[in-house]
Design a protein around this nucleic acid. Structure first.
Lengths: 187, 187
DNA sequence: AATTAATCTAAACGATAGGTTAGAAATAAT
DNA sequence: ATTATTTCTAACCTATCGTTTAGATTAATT
């Protein structure tokens, strides 16, 4: 009996994700989302419940997109070198034409305070934990060098990755490369 | 003839700066500022013109506060070790009780987009340039190690400092220490 | 063709944003 | 004590925020 939906949810979420990625949660208005997603406010609320619901789905969508890069890291067998490649891959991933958008997860962590929506905060910390555990695995896998405290190195690289995500929106390509090269110099 | 102002501009700016530092520019409302600064909107606009004008003065106020830490770095004579001490000093500086507020300049860079108020953007890039040049000076001053490319190392430490400022709001004290120690391992 | 149940458009909702203004209160000079 | 000039209070302004709703539109079922 019903009328057919004129849009695909997965398609419009990808548009929403792009807007949130570029502008952040607070700086993105529902009116902007209507325009970019190509559907009406009514439809957005019918499909996603609220702006926060839409954002949560956008984060999921972002993670799925990034998973391809993370999978490559997972499959790598050269230890630390694989992590270094992941750093470079991330910059490529987050770059659109000349503009670099950073990481949606990191951008959100920078934007939100500790009293934000718990579901959103959980999504952020889940992602951080996942990346850290992959880093740890690669560090322990590395046979070239004897590392006394793998947990410490995992923290180091995790914070370095977070820093790179933030810095990628501000600094030049050259500066970011200098950063990455030196981060992996001492390992 | 006139009535006396019941508040001191420098005093209320410090209150405003604290609020912006904790919550960011967009997330801070004029109503919140009224309350925290202890004066009316009328007085705020009479003294500072606009929310952006108030923010600009807050950034100046922040820089002056941080200058004490930067001055210590400037006076240091042990090269890279002085920069490392600055990293630790910054964490202490930005910590209030248990909560870490990061760096107001970095927080703002993370929050704003490239099309933001030019005066504010200029204030941010001026500060970044200043820190970079102090780092460069300390790197060149360091006699312990032969550094082939001081400019590259300056970029490295500048981006690392930016990353630390962002990360300080998210990660634990221990993780931040692991980060700093490893940043300076390879130099 | 009529019915039914969903989607869609578009207007409106209350709340709050940054910013303004009229008038009362206060102070120094005349 | 009156006047002149500034500060202050408090109400108000317009615009926009996220969200909701009424009514027209559409399409599958009877």
């Amino acid at each position: 009996m019903p009328r057919k939906k004129s849009y695909n949810e997965d398609e419009v979420i990808e548009k929403a994700m792009e807007v949130f990625w570029k502008n952040g949660f607070e700086m993105t208005s529902m009116q902007q989302l209507e325009k970019e997603m190509g559907i009406n406010k009514f439809s957005i609320y019918a499909s996603f419940g609220s702006k926060e619901g839409l954002f949560l789905r956008s984060i999921q969508c972002y993670k799925e997109k990034l998973q391809k890069v993370v999978e490559k890291l997972r499959r790598s067998t050269d230890g630390i070198e694989g992590i270094k490649a992941y750093f470079y891959d991330f910059i490529t991933f987050s770059k659109e034409h000349e503009m670099v958008k950073g990481c949606l997860v990191t951008n959100t962590a920078n934007e939100l305070r500790a009293d934000a929506n718990p579901e959103i905060l959980a999504a952020l910390s889940d992602f951080t934990s996942e990346i850290r555990s992959v880093f740890l695995e690669k560090i322990q896998q590395d046979s070239n060098l004897k590392i006394d405290d793998p947990e410490e190195k995992a923290d180091y690289l995790l914070v370095a990755m977070f820093g790179l995500s933030s810095a990628s929106r501000v600094f030049t390509q050259k500066q970011l490369h200098h950063y990455i090269e030196n981060i992996f110099n001492n390992l």
